[in-house]
């Protein structure tokens, strides 16, 4: 089992690199797919590994986006610096919020995170001097990445920049979730009452997971703001929070390669359907989501491992 999961990262990376050469006209779409994959991975550290649901995770995504945009608007135009700042600030915000999120059960968490989402949205709307309010922020220019690579029209720089971030996040989360800490998170997911009995500090573990998850979500937001030269209220809105939950579930919550595939698949489907039928594409999305629940139990990852089990059974 463990070997298979390690192995899944490499083909995914090869496919990503190959797509650069195979689909040169789709680079800006691929860039957004990578960013959403990072966001979904960040979210799934909570839902899939620690078993903590949230309907307000876009708060951190938006925090990262605004951090990168505000920094760039005030002269800090090096993208990597913006990225690190977004990671730290969103992580800090998550740390501050842990106290009210970690207590309670799933239902109260859904309500609390939803509430935090609305609060932050209105706060960002009111702080017009900083965030541009409902008009969003687009009046900033990003510098070249590491002073070398300018963001170009076709999106080549953005493609590699986001892919590099995705690879780092993937490797980090892989390492984290297979560590004893990751094991403890899974323990919390499976039985939160028993964990204290074996001496595991549940609250501290959850706080750590929440902080890391928030930081990485902020990183994803910063990537989107930098590569699309734009930040807006939309980025911390409820729809984005709900979407990330769908992506993680569709991919197979708890499986890192599964979540990447879920995010990429869902977002690509959205784009393809909306190009095909700009008016009625929501219908297609709804059908796919419903089908995936009935046909693909455990999402894409669940489907794949069921298939593998069957193949092995025959062999």
């Amino acid at each position: 089992m463990r070997l298979i999961r390690i192995g899944a990262g490499l083909p995914l990376l090869l496919a990503a690199v190959a797509s650069f050469f195979l689909f040169p006209e789709y680079l800006s779409l691929l860039n957004t797919l990578f960013i959403l994959a990072i966001f979904a991975l960040a979210y799934d550290l909570l839902q899939g590994h620690a078993g903590v649901v949230s309907l307000g995770h876009a708060v951190f995504f938006g925090m990262g986006a605004y951090t990168a945009a505000v920094l760039a608007a005030h002269g800090v135009t090096e993208p990597v610096v913006g990225l690190l700042a977004a990671l730290l600030l969103s992580g800090l915000l998550a740390l501050l919020l842990t106290r009210i999120v970690v207590v309670g059960n799933d239902l109260t968490r859904l309500l609390v995170t939803l509430g935090i989402g609305f609060l932050m949205l209105e706060a960002a709307n009111q702080a017009r001097w900083l965030t541009g309010g409902a008009d969003g922020m687009s009046d900033f220019t990003m510098g070249p990445v590491l002073g070398l690579f300018r963001f170009d029209f076709a999106g080549e720089t953005a493609f590699w920049y986001s892919l590099a971030a995705l690879v780092l996040v993937y490797a980090f989360l892989w390492r984290l979730t297979t560590s004893p800490f990751g094991l403890a998170l899974r323990g919390i997911r499976e039985n939160v009452r028993r964990m204290p009995a074996i001496g595991a500090p549940v609250r501290r573990h959850l706080a750590t997971a929440y902080t890391i998850s928030g930081g990485i979500a902020g990183l994803a937001g910063a990537l989107l703001a930098q590569t699309s030269n734009f930040a807006s209220l939309d980025m911390l809105g409820f729809e984005r929070s709900a979407e990330v939950m769908m992506m993680a579930t569709l991919g197979g919550t708890g499986s890192i390669p599964g979540v990447v595939l879920g995010a990429v698949g869902f977002s690509y489907l959205k784009d393809a359907l909306s190009a095909m039928s700009p008016k009625y594409w929501h219908l297609g999305i709804g059908l796919v989501l419903m089908l995936s629940v009935f046909v693909l139990r455990g999402g894409i990852a669940g489907g794949v491992s069921a298939l593998l089990r069957r193949l092995r059974g025959r062999g």
Binding site: S228, F230, D234, P278
Partner: peptide, 24 residues
């Protein structure tokens, strides 16, 4: 060629759609 930008605030999407319309 029509594309759907889904309403206000989705500037990142409208930017990408603009790019895709021009390039693709």
């Amino acid at each position: 060629v029509m594309r759907d930008d889904q309403g206000p605030g989705s500037g990142d999407l409208s930017r990408r759609l603009t790019q895709e319309l021009i390039q693709r």
